[in-house]
């Protein structure tokens, strides 16, 4: 499991952790039941405040992605396959929306964008 924290980024550190762990879960690099590093262990590894890592885990727990078992640590939540799929779809949707936004800035038409998507889809 790789986590890369950029201290100078505008994005708060806890959000960087949330985003990266979330991505790993959605890509199934982390599977249901996998243990996560302890809050303090992670803070030590990343040399950041314990409050920050705790907050990241709280956030992930709120989203139902991880569960904390008192005294044992935190684990990746067993995901409902449908739910997981939905979350992944949402992720793709977000990325596409971003692409659309950029396209509009360059005044690309829908057709041009679709063509680009088609080419990319066949290529990958």
């Amino acid at each position: 499991m790789d986590l890369i924290i950029v201290n100078s980024a505008a994005e708060p550190i806890y959000e960087q952790i949330v985003r990266q762990i979330k991505a790993m879960i959605l890509r199934v690099q982390l599977k249901g039941g996998d243990p996560l590093p302890s809050i303090r262990g992670l803070a030590k590894e990343l040399q950041i405040s314990v409050i920050t890592t705790k907050r990241a885990y709280d956030e992930l727990e709120k989203e139902g992605l991880i569960v904390s078992v008192g005294g044992k640590g935190s684990f990746v939540a067993e995901q409902n396959p449908e739910l997981l799929r939905e979350k992944k779809l949402k992720l793709i949707e977000d990325k596409l929306a971003e692409a659309v936004q950029d396209a509009k800035m360059l005044d690309l038409s829908l057709e041009e964008l679709q063509l680009m998507l088609k080419l990319l889809y066949e290529e990958v």
Partner: peptide, 28 residues
């Protein structure tokens, strides 16, 4: 210091005017 805090019963009070030391590890 960060290693020390793996034991969650402990605490550190750290006075400094070199605040870059705190940007990373300080909780409060």
């Amino acid at each position: 210091l960060v290693e020390l805090l793996q034991d969650e019963r402990k605490g550190v009070l750290f006075s400094t005017h070199i605040t870059t030391d705190l940007d990373k590890v300080a909780d409060y």
